[in-house]
Design a protein around this nucleic acid. Sequence first.
DNA 1: AGGCGCTTGTGAAGGTGTGCACAAATCGCG
DNA 2: CGCGATTTGTGCACACCTTCACAAGCGCCT
Lengths: 251, 251
Amino acid sequence: MSQQRHGSTPGNGPGERAGAVTAFPDLPEATIARLPEYLRALHNLGEAGGDTVSSEGLAAAAGVNSAKLRKDLSHLGSYGTRGVGYDVALLIEQIEYVLGLDQRRAVCLVGLGNLGHALAGYDGFASRGFKIVALFDADASKVGEEIQGLLVRHIEDLGRVAVEENIAIGVIATPADAAQAVADVLVDAGVTSILNFAPCVLSVPANVDVRKVDLAIELQILSFHEHRKASLTALPGGRSAPAGNQEAVGS
Amino acid sequence: MSQQRHGSTPGNGPGERAGAVTAFPDLPEATIARLPEYLRALHNLGEAGGDTVSSEGLAAAAGVNSAKLRKDLSHLGSYGTRGVGYDVALLIEQIEYVLGLDQRRAVCLVGLGNLGHALAGYDGFASRGFKIVALFDADASKVGEEIQGLLVRHIEDLGRVAVEENIAIGVIATPADAAQAVADVLVDAGVTSILNFAPCVLSVPANVDVRKVDLAIELQILSFHEHRKASLTALPGGRSAPAGNQEAVGS
DNA sequence: AGGCGCTTGTGAAGGTGTGCACAAATCGCG
DNA sequence: CGCGATTTGTGCACACCTTCACAAGCGCCT
């Protein structure tokens, strides 16, 4: 959500093999958002030694229900075996292919404040298909600094470096009032996907995808549920739950 | 999305009255997720001096379309004036009330690695209704360190401090393999809302809300769209947007 | 006072996503 | 070789969300 429409190719037959240069299954947005979670779960299971997983098992590991998982995977084609389950290695390969993770993608990060520093050092990127290849900031006092072995450059160099390094994804970790200007620079540099941590909306051309992560919004949503829970427990019979530790979902 | 059941009250029929005794509008989840965005936009508009906003104007500032915005707001009640628009101050007050932001909420943060440090210093929390009142880590070498004027305590103290400080929201910024244990501790300490940055699924009792933010997943979703776009431009007749800067206001 | 333009609030239609329940497919075993 | 246990893939019904289109309400101007 919060994205713009995604054109979908004309009607490509679903049955067709993957690998086709062109044929791209047009997956529901909701499914796409879950594939990375399945991928993570599969990697865990793979290290744990299993060769195959049932939809039930994988669903539990990914925190969804099994019917949904099966439907999601069926959109990619038929990579399971009835009566057996899914081949872990094969499924990993397929999902990585669909997500375009078979090639390591170059990412640049703009804004090296508190959050930017943390992102630059976050190893979850490197381990999951991405490589931060350049850091930018507008603040001259930060330019030249070295973080995680990468030099912070001035944002003026972004255009040139983006082309040199073939950067298609940019991460914005600047204050809100600088974000739109940065987005404009990124777009002009040919970046077509932006991950925005600044609390503001960005205007970009239709061919550019933007995803937004706003930490405060997440907390506010939780706050709502707190508020709601409080207003419920205030009324009905005594007290809230006994705080036991009943592990709702099977771990 | 990615949340567990929001059990609502028991099996309240659909049509049935909304506001339980407490009269709480039972808002669609999708609406709740957008309210914080409206709130932010309203604060911006308020500072810009406007007394009232039209649904069109607010929608643009929040990055949604106006019909959706009106429907969302209509769920809270009628706080607009036909022919005029919405009173900015009044609407801010209402949304803050619904989100439970009229009281500042105490938050604790567990895990002070790279990301944890950044979160501890993120001023977006303080400015939007939250206060980080305690920091915890399991690593003895971090305990005692002072970050942003707050002492890092050992996680063993979490239970006691959580009660003393009346903490209802916990943020997990630990590695994935520690996250479940931390969640268990939080739950035992009476925390009923968790924001999880660790890339793993958490098992918690049904009365606890969990929201997950996974930075790598966001990138992987963008990667998919990159992949798709690449496989499209490879085929059709010439193309590639002119990179102009045409402000295609996001939908 | 009355009419006119503007903007909200909402019924209804269409689309997307979810979950159930079951047929189809596969394996292992006697 | 056939049977039963198991597990995938999917048709269908339902719930949720989005979008359109318009009536109802409000303020302003004459």
